[in-house]
Design a protein around this nucleic acid. Structure first.
Lengths: 239, 239
DNA sequence: CGCGAGGTTGATTGGGCTCAATACAAGTGG
DNA sequence: CCACTTGTATTGAGCCCAATCAACCTCGCG
């Protein structure tokens, strides 16, 4: 079956699911979101979704594919600041005339839409706020990762985070998930070189911690890996 | 003159100034903020302002002193995620029952107050949103710093950022500012060891880039240093 | 005067980088 | 169908930046 023939609501259900799980959307919010999703926009890989220093015209919701915030140093060194996955919001600010603090670039083919403006549905606003809080928590984790973890721990920790995040939008298959990025991209997210990431991934496989093959990642024992790298799950909500 | 005898509005003017500069506060917002500032709370160094995983009871505004978000790894490694300076807001979330993603600890004696709740003054909300956007931009910078800069660049870049931020609240004296933290604290913010920070600070002095003495930092030529470490100022607002 | 925190210095080690070559698969055009 | 290109992954050798370990110094302060 050709995936383009699937109804948007079904094709982009991961993004919808994520927001629905964050806050229980009422019928009106859900319907407004569905309407927005019905007007998707597709971008090829390596296209800019936002550009550092430019005005942010409106927020966007990732419906499918992977993107990343990126910062390039004057001499060409590149750092991916965080990954943006289906269900993630970008460019959502609450002040007037916002300017993007970073460029956001697509890593794969990406589908986005313009979500309902904040302030129209209380439950949706709650989902937006939660999404933003999660985003902040992930940035903080990224800082600790880069500042105080060694290469092996960084990789393990990030792979666990991605599993955690993707499972929120039902994009995991048990202990596996699609990881549609190159080792070089991974390196630029982890503050390492591609060569070293390659060696560490092999070491992780030998240790039975991570199995990477053909754009897919498997974590045989997430609990054990979490213990090994000293990771605790991200939480922003009281139980 | 004993500083405790100064009126709160004057003593804590740096924090007030910062928020006033972010958005032009109208009289009502300014007065509400002044009322809040009139009920300050003082904390000694090394006290927790928020604890990771615990409920956030209400937002807080730093009136004086330095604090930091911190993450401790199970084996004791410590990473300061960002510094919190006078005028910075903490624990401001827009969803119900927020939980703090990190512990926040005072580095010096710190004065805080509970700022007016969001939603009561439009200009104040604008200032809150801008403050939050700046905060996010600084987190992103911290990620690039840790991921892709060497020790010397990290130090220069952070010292420039602090100068930039402190000047927003008029806490700079020309090219100098008070830096009331130890080299070990700096090391934990920069993902380095205290020993190495010490060596690099000496090298920076020899190079004429930074002059650190008795808790005070001077940047003889900010422009030149910015060029040297490849830094561009943080902006979140269209001009 | 003794103590402790913070700062300084030297010697050594090592994790991750650099440079370089090779392998391999997917296109792509002749 | 093959030659060629391009992007990605892999492997090896050597080096360097920052960590580690260990003294020692300085100063404020009880």
């Amino acid at each position: 079956m050709n995936p383009t023939q699937i109804r948007p609501a079904a094709r982009f259900s991961p993004a919808l699911n994520r927001l629905s799980k964050l806050a229980r959307l009422d019928a009106a919010a859900h319907s407004a979101l569905s309407d927005a999703i019905a007007r998707p926009q597709v971008l090829r890989p390596r296209r800019d979704l936002l550009i550092e220093g430019r005005d942010v015209p409106h927020p966007q919701l990732i419906l499918s594919g992977w993107a990343a915030r990126v910062r390039i140093l004057p001499d060409g060194r590149r750092q991916f600041l965080n990954f943006l996955l289906p269900g993630d919001l970008i460019g959502l600010y609450h002040h007037s005339r916002p300017v993007s603090p970073t460029t956001i670039v697509t890593l794969t083919e990406v589908t986005v839409c313009v979500p309902p403006a904040p302030g129209s549905h209380a439950t949706l606003d709650e989902a937006y706020a939660l999404s933003q809080a999660l985003d902040e928590a992930h940035l903080l984790s990224q800082i600790a990762r880069l500042g105080r973890m060694n290469a092996m721990e960084r990789i393990g920790d990030l792979m666990l985070e991605l599993h955690e995040r993707l499972s929120l939008s039902d994009l995991t298959q048990g202990r596996s998930y699609e990881l549609p990025i190159t080792q070089e991209t991974l390196a630029d997210a982890l503050g390492l070189t591609a060569v070293h990431v390659n060696r560490m991934l092999q070491a992780a496989r030998r240790a039975g911690d991570l199995i990477w093959s053909t754009r897919s990642m498997t974590i045989p024992d997430p609990q054990q890996l979490a213990r090994k790298v000293g990771r605790s799950p991200v939480r922003v909500l009281a139980p």
